[in-house]
Design a protein around this nucleic acid. Structure first.
Lengths: 405, 405
DNA sequence: GAAAGAGCGAAAAACGTTTTCCTTGAATGG
DNA sequence: CCATTCAAGGAAAACGTTTTTCGCTCTTTC
């Protein structure tokens, strides 16, 4: 359970050669100044430890500052942390010494006593190349600036069962956690929730005593798409989805169903296909749709990539988008812009989601009464060139609520 | 110079209300077990500090383990760190206690004494949305797994002059640094180099005592493109570039020039245009190229996005790609795949670059004699649909070395 | 049976902070 | 002029590790 190899059992006795010793190899004052802007003599210490040779410059500590300013370390600490009961004069004097020695407080020592690392952990699963995550990070970065927190990416190796998410968090002592796009069923999640580390899940509808989530209004996004297509006269609207086992899939499907109900369109089970968020698979499924006796006149895809795959198949089969079939994407990535025809798609303000997720998290960290968020961010439909009026307005489906759209 | 607001000067005296005190609000044993898998009683401590209310569970420390196993702290530490001179029996006993108490060593305490944070800092400048960086991260993630290091993203606010890159590194005490796509002229770079923190620059050709860089063979990439076009019969090849003030721009331009020389093509200054890595600007510049008395029959763009912009303008002006003009991109992003026609482009194995960059860095951290890398990663030309034989093979340029290509 | 190692394990000193609890001296009020 | 209060700052105890040094207990070996 603990996350390091504390017992190499048998082989240890063999691989051991000799007791490692820390040796001070050399310590010499080079007589010039640290970093060119520091009045502490540039002592270079070289240690040989069991881990590695570590070369380190002398760094001024709070003790050095205290000596330099002629006050106690407690006073320096109080100046640093803006405590009252320090006179303006002392404050100034200490500040001067800090500047002169180029002092910076040591995060580890600080963390050791305060029990706060000012580190926010980020967990995700092989998601770096997703444009969604990319945008999300951009948003988080924005919110991060000046907050004093840094983001630490906690690598997650599923095969390394010893190093669970929780262990990793605990040993790094993160103050809070952003978890991106993890399935509810992920095995490590329950202990994580129990640990009551402030957590914001992105796109996983999980809540706990100190955990909330943020997601986009996926239901509404698809609903908007259905409305848009209905308004263009489409009555046979197919739905190409990915996995339905997460909130994204479920809520988008819910939007499709709501849309059908709202506009009195029939639910045709063969109109629902699984593209697996994959371009190639999307093409395969699209082919199946076109082969139906009554093929749909429009397809809503739950990702831009799938929409692109669908379009390429439609065109390969001799039909045209949007003249013959309208296609709607999802995410408004630059695939949507890039695609020819440019995709009508649902836009979620991902950057804002990132910034808000972090905002909520910092709120929770700083205030234990901050309610864990359950935030559903707004979406909008971006109309481009992949959707158009339905050519065959004569459909067998009665247009029940024509006024809407 | 120091990176925190240690002297709020005037206003401080006003904003101070009262001396903050740490108060133990409650400490109670809830009588159930930590995390469901731990035999330490679940004491909940609530502190009110000046910063915030912090709720924390009791976490087993090395002292608890020592007590539980009936040995000294030193022994536990030695077991954890795999020191010899601990008998197999003791080792086992301690391991059991560690397991039983669900103990994890505290990173801050560890870092305090070892002076190693096992944190690798990542600096970049608003680059999260770049697909290049995205891939790079994916590669780094791969190398990271199990190494014991974590990546910490160090936010860089240019306006916050106080919090320089170096300060940030020093206070977080990172063991090493990855710096992505920063101009050589960036003001903070020199002090950073002097600090001799192991550093690998990605796409910035900067070296120092403990700093090296990794980049792709940009020169060869463009050279391959020129060769490819020359082989297709093109003799009037234009070059659309971004900024020439960094290694990327310079070395790609160098490749273009080498290519012209190698195949005896003339250097035509009006064939060199600046697309600024921007789609719109690329279109503008492409228009200028087409308006030349002798327009080029092929264009090499130093990014896929610019290539896409160029193509859209070419088609808008009534010409066709590749029939009338061949276009080569760079990067092999999914823009290249997505584009219609799909782009012939130069592929750099970015993921591998990321993984190698980290590999070198970890090497440097672990071994002070590890030479800072100067790594030029290989590239390859991916031929797709945006390049074709030149229609007008009758050119005024003598084809000097037809055999090559 | 004594001396010499080898093998184990313990005590204790760092590491650089924060925070609590005091001490001091000055100001104030009567 | 004395008693009281208050502001300013210092001493010292944590925080949880690693690493050094040293002492004890067994085996061997002569």
């Amino acid at each position: 359970m603990a996350g390091f190899t504390y017992i190499p059992a048998r082989q240890s006795e063999k691989s051991i050669d000799k007791f490692p010793r820390k040796r001070l190899i050399s310590e010499q004052s080079r007589g010039n100044l640290c970093c060119g802007c520091c009045s502490v003599f540039d002592k270079e210490k070289v240690f040989l430890t069991n881990k590695s040779l570590k070369v380190g410059r002398h760094m001024a500590s709070i003790v050095d500052v205290a000596k330099h300013a002629g006050v106690s370390i407690a006073t320096v600490s109080k100046v640093i942390n803006n405590y009252p009961s320090i006179s303006r004069k002392t404050r100034l004097k200490v500040a001067e010494s800090i500047e002169a020695l180029n002092y910076l407080p040591n995060a580890a020592a600080r963390g050791l006593v305060t029990k706060r690392s000012r580190l926010i952990g980020v967990f995700m699963h092989n998601l770096f190349t997703s444009p969604f995550v990319t945008e999300l990070f951009a948003g988080m970065e924005e919110r991060l600036g000046g907050s004093g927190y840094d983001l630490v990416y906690l690598s997650m190796k599923p095969e390394d069962r010893h190093y669970s998410m929780l262990s990793h968090c605990r040993s790094r002592d993160v103050d809070g956690l952003i978890v991106i796009g993890i399935d509810r069923e992920y095995p490590d999640l329950q202990p994580l929730l129990k640990a009551e580390i402030p957590t914001v899940f992105v796109d996983t509808d999980l809540i706990g005593k100190r955990a909330g989530y943020i997601t986009a209004d996926n239901t509404r996004g698809i609903l908007l798409a259905v409305a848009h297509l209905y308004g263009l006269g489409h009555r046979r609207v197919a739905f190409m989805t990915g996995d339905l086992n997460n909130i994204i899939g479920r809520s988008r499907f819910e939007g499709y169903q709501q849309g059908l109900r709202a506009f009195g369109l029939p639910y045709v089970s063969s109109y629902i296909v699984y593209g697996n968020y994959d371009k190639t698979q999307a093409a395969v499924e699209m082919a199946a749709l076109l082969a139906l006796p009554e093929p749909p006149t429009a397809v809503i895809c739950t990702s831009d990539v799938m929409a692109a795959g669908a379009i390429s198949l439609i065109e390969a089969s001799g039909k045209r988008v949007p003249e013959d079939v309208s296609v709607v994407g999802y995410d408004n990535t630059f695939v949507a812009e890039m695609s020819r025809p440019a995709l009508t798609t649902v836009n979620q303000n991902i950057k804002q989601m990132g910034s808000r997720a972090l905002g909520h998290l910092i709120g929770m960290i700083d205030d234990p009464d901050y309610a864990p968020p359950v935030a559903i961010e707004p979406v909008e439909l971006i109309v481009r060139d992949s959707t158009a009026h339905c050519r065959d307005l004569i459909t067998q489906v009665p247009a029940r609520k024509e006024e809407e759209a």
